[in-house]
Design a protein around this nucleic acid. Structure first.
Lengths: 196, 196
DNA sequence: GTCTATACAGGGATAGAC
DNA sequence: GTCTATCCCTGTATAGAC
């Protein structure tokens, strides 16, 4: 049970991830050095390699973790009821989830191109699963006659772009509260897909 | 009139800009080296400094140029007629202009944080002018009763995010033509702002 | 105008002491 | 588990020859 003096692997590991997330989000993956991450954690650069094999793994783990959290949370969302209700829940979920972790969102959308050839498809597949979830709601709504859209795939992309855009400008304590923003987006999205 | 042998300043300068644009768009500003740009142009790294004082100036010039082109083209757009017609023209203009230069768009939206403290506000001001142009159309439409929206500023941000998202997935020769995409977005945007 | 050569700082990652 | 020290590479930018 007793741990070696000075050993804090269980706490330092997460702190490395947190520092990397913070710095990648602020300055971009390519612009951040391992030395900067180490300084943020309060250790020497060499010590980082006890927690990650390399810089790329740090990025990949953070993006994969984010997408998995997103999909896991989505899976817990009530998927019953008529399409308009499902769509409304999706919109609120998306805005809420993304607004709660702006750094992870930012990294996940900006650093895709910095993934290696092996890691990229993994993240891409997770992202596509999320888009498909929205598209299925839209398709169900079109089939039921609740929505009217020429192309559900394109509409799904358009809506996700619109919703994710919130994180680029939303700031707690700004002109509008998150609840107000949610309200406005729900109304706008419903109208966009032709929900009466 | 005779130019020094080997002198091609008038042609090499633009080639440096083009190479920087291509590489910044593909790999990101921070990940691209001056050596890579030089290799793309076919000169040695040192020669680049005949055309730009430094790497940052390359980024700034390309972003400023892009935003100025955008605003200039927007200024030429017919701004007469009722708000729904104006909005439709704006949507078609935005999609068309952005789809025609995906690299410049990509750099302009991704590399904002890599601008220095002096350069950032310049680009930000240009961007805001563009957003304001859309917001004015929305406000005019609300005033005239053509549109229904709780917040024109937020709607403008939402629509621009949605429209700009097109450049992230649109590929010439894909499932839909640009004209089809435009059609669909025009319809979706009009509905989103409550235009009957 | 472009080249070669180079200065100098900083990058990622590893080795071995403690 | 973390440190110091270090390897080797690459980064931006400049100087001076041609």
């Amino acid at each position: 049970m007793a741990r070696t003096q000075g050993s804090r692997s269980d706490v330092t590991g997460p702190r490395v991830e947190a520092a990397a997330l913070k710095l990648f989000a602020r300055d971009g993956y390519a612009a951040v050095s391992m030395r900067q991450i180490a300084a943020e954690v309060g250790v020497q650069a060499g010590a980082l390699y006890s927690y990650t094999p390399d810089k790329q793994s740090l990025l990949f783990a953070m993006m994969k973790g984010h997408m998995e959290d997103l999909l896991e949370a989505l899976a817990k969302l009530d998927s019953s009821g008529p399409p308009p209700a499902r769509l409304e829940r999706f919109v609120r979920f998306h805005i809420g989830f993304h607004a709660a972790r702006p750094e992870a969102v930012f990294v996940s959308y900006m650093e895709i191109r910095n993934l290696t050839a092996e890691n990229f498809p993994v993240i891409e597949a997770l992202r596509r699963r999320y888009e498909t979830a929205l598209e299925q709601i839209l398709r169900a709504g079109r089939d039921s006659g609740d929505f009217a859209m020429p192309d559900t795939k394109l509409a799904a992309m358009a809506l996700i772009a619109m919703l994710t855009g919130v994180t680029t400008w939303f700031r707690e304590g700004g002109r509008l509260s998150l609840a107000e923003v949610e309200e406005i987006y729900v109304a706008m999205v419903k109208k966009a897909v032709g929900a009466g």
